[in-house]
Design a protein around this nucleic acid. Structure first.
Lengths: 123, 123
DNA sequence: TCTTTCAACAATTATATCGTTATATAGTTG
DNA sequence: CAACTATATAACGATATAATTGTTGAAAGA
C-alpha cells in the first residue's frame, strides 16, 4: 500500500463530517427532539414537527441509516425510537457554545447602548 | 406576542443545525485538525491540507465566523488559531460513536462469516 | 517606484440537498 | 379479493454549497 495514511485519514474526516451533516438540518434535530421524548410512529412525528409525511419519512431514513434512531414495525405502523443517546451530548455542547456566544453579543450590545446613552458625548 | 414558543424553538433548531453544518465538511475538519496542533498561517494550512489557497481561505472565513478559530494579522501574514476548544469534545464523541458502529459491523461481519463457514448448513 | 508575496474577493460551474407531488408497497379489515 | 391506512420511494424543481480560476489589495523589500 502506497501512502495509506493520507487516504485513510481522508476517509475518517469524511465519515465524521457526514455524521455532523446528519445533524445539520433543523427538521432532523426537531425529529430527534421529538423521538427522544418517547418512541413515536411516523404519523405521530409528522403531527408534531409540522412537515409533510414524505419529507419526514425521508429524514427518518437518513437518521436511521446514521444510527441515530431505531426502526421497528408494529402492525401497519412503524415506530421510531432513540438509538444513539450520545447525540444529546453533542447538542448540549453546541447549545452551550451558542449560548456563551450570545452572552458575548449581549454584553457588547449593552456596552454599545450605554455608550450611546451616556453623557460620554457631551461636547 | 402570539405563539412565540414555536418560532423561537424553530430559530434554536436552525442555529444548532448551522453549527453542525460548519463541521460537516471534511476540509473544514482537516483545517481544524491542523490548526489545533498549533497556530498557522494560511499558507501553512494550505500546504498541509492540500487544497487551493482560495478554497482554504473561504473555509477559514466560515470557521472564523462560526467562532471555531481566531484570526490575527502579523506582518503580511494572517495567523489562525483555535478559539473554540469544545469542538474537540464534539469530534471525540462522534469518533467514538462511529468506532462503536464499526465494531458492530465487524461483529456482524464475523457472525456472517461464521454462519457461512459452520456446519449449520448441513442438510 | 517596481516587484514579490500573501491573502481575500468575485464569478462560474458542478454537485448536493431540501421539499413537494405523485405513486408504490405492506399490513389490516370487510 | 377489494378497500383502507400507514409508510416508503421516485421524480422533479428550487436552493444552497463547494471548488476552480482569475483578479484585486495590501504589506515588505530592492
Amino acid at each position: 500500500m502506497s501512502d495509506p495514511v493520507i487516504s485513510e485519514s481522508e476517509a475518517v474526516f469524511s465519515r465524521v463530517a457526514s455524521y455532523f451533516g446528519v445533524l445539520s438540518e433543523p427538521l432532523r434535530l426537531k425529529i430527534i427532539n421529538t423521538v427522544c421524548r418517547g418512541e413515536k410512529t411516523v404519523g405521530g412525528i409528522v403531527d408534531i414537527v409540522g412537515s409533510s409525511q414524505a419529507n419526514v419519512s425521508k429524514h427518518l431514513q437518513i437518521l436511521t441509516q446514521a444510527g441515530v434512531i431505531d426502526r421497528r414495525k408494529e402492525g401497519t405502523s412503524v415506530i421510531y425510537s432513540m438509538a444513539d443517546k450520545s447525540v444529546f451530548d453533542l447538542c448540549r455542547t453546541v447549545c452551550n457554545r451558542i449560548a456563551s456566544n450570545l452572552k458575548g453579543h449581549a454584553a457588547l450590545h449593552q456596552g454599545l447602548a450605554e455608550l450611546a446613552d451616556e453623557d460620554s458625548w457631551i461636547i
